[in-house]
Computed example of a mutant assay.
Amino acid sequence: MSEECRSSGVGGILLAFIAGAAVGGGLALLAAPRSGEETRHRLTDLADETREKLHEMTEEAEAHVREAIEEGREALMEKREMVKAAVEAGKKAMEEERGKHAKST
């Protein structure tokens, strides 16, 4: 579970870095000596690029969540089988003890 926390922390840091880069890039474009049309075009390109990166990060995060859910499901099934086997072993032991007790009385 701590590994999940670390990977989500890294994703948060990466997202903050990308957002900071986008804001910084946008401010740099606004401060640069260019025509308004050229600046708007570059801002549009930057926004599109940032949107694509965020989309990729979202897909990657979804894949990690799906993987974690599947791993949790598998672990739950394993534990369920272990509990089931323990209950069956307990029932069998109880029946054997009842049989021994019935024979001795």
Rank of each mutant, 00 (worst) to 15 (best):
E81G: 12
A63P: 01
A89S: 06
R80E: 03
E37I: 05
T105R: 10
I13W: 09
G99K: 11
K103T: 09
E49T: 12
M94C: 14
S7Q: 15
R40N: 02
R98Y: 01
T39S: 05
E3A: 12
A28D: 13
G24Y: 01
G90I: 07
E81M: 10
A31L: 08
E38R: 13
A19L: 02
L30A: 05
E70P: 05
E37Y: 07
E4C: 10
M57S: 14
M82C: 06
G36T: 08
L29F: 00
S2C: 05
R40I: 04
L43F: 01
E96R: 06
M94P: 02
K84S: 15
A63C: 03
A85H: 11
S7W: 08
E56C: 06
R66N: 12
E88S: 02
H101W: 12
K103D: 08
R73E: 02
T39E: 01
P33H: 04
K92S: 12
T44E: 13
G12M: 12
M77T: 15
V83S: 10
G20S: 12
A31G: 00
R40W: 07
S104R: 13
A86H: 15
R34N: 11
A63D: 14
E97Y: 12
T39C: 09
L43A: 00
G24E: 00
A61E: 09
A16M: 10
S8L: 06
R42A: 10
A28P: 00
E56I: 14
G90P: 00
D45T: 14
G26K: 01
S8C: 04
G99I: 13
L46G: 02
T44F: 09
G9V: 13
E49V: 08
L76K: 04
A19W: 03
E38N: 04
A16D: 07
T105P: 06
G12R: 06
M57I: 09
H64P: 05
A47L: 10
A16R: 02
E37V: 01
A63Q: 10
K91V: 13
F17Q: 14
R73V: 04
V10S: 07
G99A: 10
C5Q: 14
G99N: 14
A85C: 04
A21Q: 15
A19D: 07
A86V: 05
R98N: 04
E88Q: 02
I69D: 05
K84M: 09
E78R: 09
A85W: 00
E95Q: 10
E59H: 10
R51M: 08
A68H: 00
I13G: 11
I69E: 01
T39H: 00
E52Q: 07
V23F: 11
T58H: 08
A63K: 14
V65P: 03
E78F: 00
E96Q: 09
L43S: 01
E70A: 12
G20V: 01
E95M: 07
C5V: 15
E49Y: 11
E38C: 00
E56H: 13
G9Y: 15
